[in-house]
């Protein structure tokens, strides 16, 4: 009995060790980059110093400015488009699909199982064959939305499956229009899922290179400029850019954390 308990404790600590090692592996490069971007010696920035030089050079670089703006436009449009479509798909699968729910769910999750590069080159082929069209912002937004749509669908489905649809019916019986039902009944109850989906789609499309790369032609976006610069060697500005994005993502995750926590409290009440 005693041997089994100690055995169990050993397994537990072993798993904890693997967890710590994995988180260390995942976070060490991020922290290293942060130090490197703040150092005048980016190759080996220990002990850490605080030198904002690379951030100032990044800020004054006009290529990065326009690229960042383009990425922002793509990410905003993509997150809205894919969240709206994902919301429709979620409600459709959970409420109206009936026996075909699994078929539709598998179809809607499909883009997840087709790699980004295939999505990029196939969209490029379509636009080229059908319209003789070079890539532009709109095609990039649409292709990014296909990719993000699956994520949005899965996130919202995970959070909406326990939604009580009778509340919508109750509101309709009391004379509410569908729009009012959405804004006054569904939105207050499901905003956490919708917001999570917006955030994830935004961040994914802000950083997605493969898809945008093939569909944008000469329009620079943040990942494509970073990729271009990477081929000529890593510069401290890239470290700075990378750190800024990492901090933004980290902030987004903290927002997600509070959203998810408040959602849990809501469902406990």
């Amino acid at each position: 009995m005693y041997a089994q308990a100690s055995n169990e404790r050993l397994t537990k600590w072993l798993m904890a060790a693997i967890l710590v090692a994995a988180y260390g592996f995942l976070y060490m490069p991020i922290v290293h980059i942060l130090f490197a971007s703040l150092s005048s010696r980016p190759n080996f920035p220990y002990p850490p110093e605080f030198d904002y030089g690379s951030y100032i050079r990044l800020y004054t670089n006009t290529v990065y400015q326009s690229a960042f703006l383009n990425s922002l436009i793509i990410a905003t449009c993509t997150s809205i488009l894919s969240t709206v479509l994902g919301f429709l798909a979620t409600v459709g699968v959970l409420r109206f699909a009936g026996r075909k729910a699994l078929v539709y769910a598998a179809f809607f999750a499909g883009p997840l199982f087709v790699s980004e590069i295939l999505l990029g080159i196939s969209s490029m082929s379509l636009y080229y064959l059908a319209f003789e069209l070079q890539g532009n912002m709109v095609t990039a937004i649409i292709a990014n939305s296909v990719h993000c749509f699956s994520f949005c669908f899965l996130i919202m489905a995970a959070l909406l499956y326990r939604y009580d649809w009778r509340m919508n019916e109750a509101a309709v019986v009391c004379g509410a229009s569908p729009v009012r039902v959405f804004f006054e009944v569904m939105l207050p109850l499901t905003w956490s899922g919708i917001l999570s989906s917006l955030i994830v789609a935004f961040v994914l499309s802000l950083n997605g290179l493969d898809i945008s790369f093939y569909l944008l032609g000469a329009t620079p976006t943040m990942p494509s400029v970073a990729w271009g610069a990477l081929r000529y060697g890593v510069k401290p500005e890239l470290y700075a850019l990378s750190s800024i994005i990492n901090i933004l993502v980290f902030a987004a995750i903290i927002v997600l954390y509070f959203v998810a926590r408040s959602d849990r409290q809501l469902s406990v009440e």
């Binding site: 970073a226 990477l230 990492n246 987004a252 995750i253 997600l256 954390y257």
Partner: peptide, 21 residues
Amino acid sequence: LLLAVPFLSGEVLRLISLQGM
């Protein structure tokens, strides 16, 4: 959720970080 930070920060940026390692 902490697992998602490295996942969401994009392939290129993660490759930059890895190159730094």
